[in-house]
């Protein structure tokens, strides 16, 4: 028998993810009426689906340990952090400062996630894309977003 290695085991962790999601679903669904098999309540589907996910998860955990397929080691952490953060900032800035700052931050922040990030080029890109999207969406299509808000 080969050594059980689960630290970077693809299927093992897929299984763990499914078990967590499935179990969470079953637990949350306990707040909803289950009903009967013929007159299903709102809790019926989430409970059944959650249980199915747990079963799939357990199977994959076992199968994964047997197969031992490895997760690709390139983790691109920079992108994983910067891209969602830029999006969240875009959402916040859209509510409080308007379209121009939101779009500038989003484009510049996203560009910074690249492996060959060039600040000046990214700044020009940010300006260009901000103008371009403002023309298309706000001016052309007429979306009701202020370009800049005052406090």
């Amino acid at each position: 028998m080969q050594k059980l290695e689960f630290r970077d085991n693809k299927d093992f962790w897929s299984g763990v993810m499914l078990v967590i999601v499935g179990a969470a679903s079953v637990i949350v669904a306990r707040n909803y009426a289950f009903g009967t098999s013929l007159r299903m309540g709102p809790g019926y589907f989430p409970t059944v689906l959650g249980s199915v996910l747990v079963l799939f998860g357990l199977y994959l955990m076992v199968a994964g340990l047997r197969r031992g397929e490895k997760i690709d080691p390139d983790w691109s952490l920079r992108g994983l952090i910067l891209l969602p953060t830029s999006l969240v900032l875009f959402g916040i800035l859209m509510s409080y400062t308007g379209f121009i700052p939101a779009m500038m931050v989003l484009v510049f922040g996203s560009a910074a996630a690249g492996t060959d990030f060039r600040p000046v080029e990214a700044l020009i890109l940010a300006i260009g894309l901000t103008v371009f999207t403002a023309v298309i969406f706000i001016w052309g299509i007429g979306l009701p977003y202020p370009l800049l808000m005052n406090w």
């Binding site: 560009a111 060039r118 990214a122 890109l125």
Partner: peptide
């Protein structure tokens, strides 16, 4: 490096 920020935008 120029394309993906545009996709994000």
């Amino acid at each position: 490096r120029l394309l993906f920020p545009a996709i994000m935008a």
